[in-house]
């Protein structure tokens, strides 16, 4: 036992300083980013051809990049030659509402006024009231959170990343966050996977067994939207088909830093970075 203690001390401190200072993650393929200066609608159409989940869709006048469907494969960046779409090592991708993960791209018509976006509001839905409601709910829990995790059909990599939160690099205990086995003691429900048919009732039972206030975090692209599985005979197409989701964290899987961002966002200790955008590009 002494030997282990000595080894532990000699290993030094490897814990990240996040949220005070994020670590660099060289090479990490975080999320696709559009560069409006270099991007044309044709690029987006090329990207849409190769996207396996339909995260990028494009037609004549309008394209959409929906991060809640992105599995970080990077094919879109490979499909465009001019660097109009790149994969940025960005991990602060957690959001309170799913619409914030969407970038709508509108084709500029020469000289015309701004084109209409098909079937969606111009302004993002009210972020502030959502934030306030969540903040109020979480007011008493800022410094201590207990998490109950439910695997509703993930591919197993999200569990690796969630479990990694307890390793010395991330150490969520220093933030006052702990895992609990019983939903009766839990404040946060982290759900991974698109919610398979057999797990629906078990997931609901877990949610019901949690006392208020409670929040639900959909972890991973499959949980946010169904991902590559979508809605089928075996999967329901995302956690928000079953439970009210408070925080979405896309990624396949989201890195532990993204998970930390999500947990701290839930307790209003960090800010949300992504917002719904509308971008204009030449066709």
């Amino acid at each position: 036992m002494l030997g282990w203690i000595v080894r532990g001390i000699r290993s030094g401190i490897v814990t990240t300083r996040y949220p005070r200072r994020p670590d660099a993650m060289p090479g990490y393929r975080g999320r696709p980013v559009l560069h409006p200066g270099r991007c044309r609608m044709a690029d987006l159409r090329a990207a849409a051809e190769v996207c396996p989940t339909g995260a990028i869709t494009a037609n004549e006048g309008h394209a959409r990049l929906d991060l809640s469907l992105c599995i970080q494969c990077g094919r879109c960046a490979d499909a465009v030659a001019n660097g109009s779409i790149t994969m940025a090592p960005d991990f602060e991708v957690a959001v309170r509402d799913r619409r914030a993960l969407v970038v709508d791209v509108v084709s500029e018509r020469n000289g015309d006024g701004p084109a209409e976006l098909p079937s969606s509001d111009h302004a993002s839905p009210t972020i502030e009231p959502v934030r306030k409601m969540l903040g109020e709910r979480m007011a008493t829990l800022k410094r201590s959170l207990h998490i109950r995790h439910v695997d509703a059909g993930s591919d197993g990599s999200e569990e690796y990343e969630i479990h990694a939160l307890t390793n010395p690099y991330y150490d969520i205990h220093r933030l006052g966050i702990f895992f609990t086995a019983t939903p009766r003691h839990a404040d946060v429900l982290m759900v991974t996977g698109p919610v398979t048919r057999p797990m629906e009732l078990a997931l609901r039972a877990t949610y019901d067994a949690m006392p208020d206030p409670r929040i639900v975090i959909a972890v991973g692209t499959s949980a946010c939207s169904g991902g590559i599985f979508g809605s089928s005979y075996a999967t329901l197409g995302g956690v928000d088909k079953v439970l009210p989701v408070d925080i979405y964290v896309p990624g396949s899987p989201p890195s532990p830093f993204a998970l930390l961002h999500a947990l701290l966002l839930a307790t209003d200790r960090v800010a949300q970075r992504l917002l719904h955008q509308v971008v204009r590009v030449p066709s």
Partner: peptide
Amino acid sequence: FYKHRGIEKLFHEAPIEQ
């Protein structure tokens, strides 16, 4: 099989790169 996602059915008629 609580995590059966029907992947083999998704393979059916998928492009090979998918």
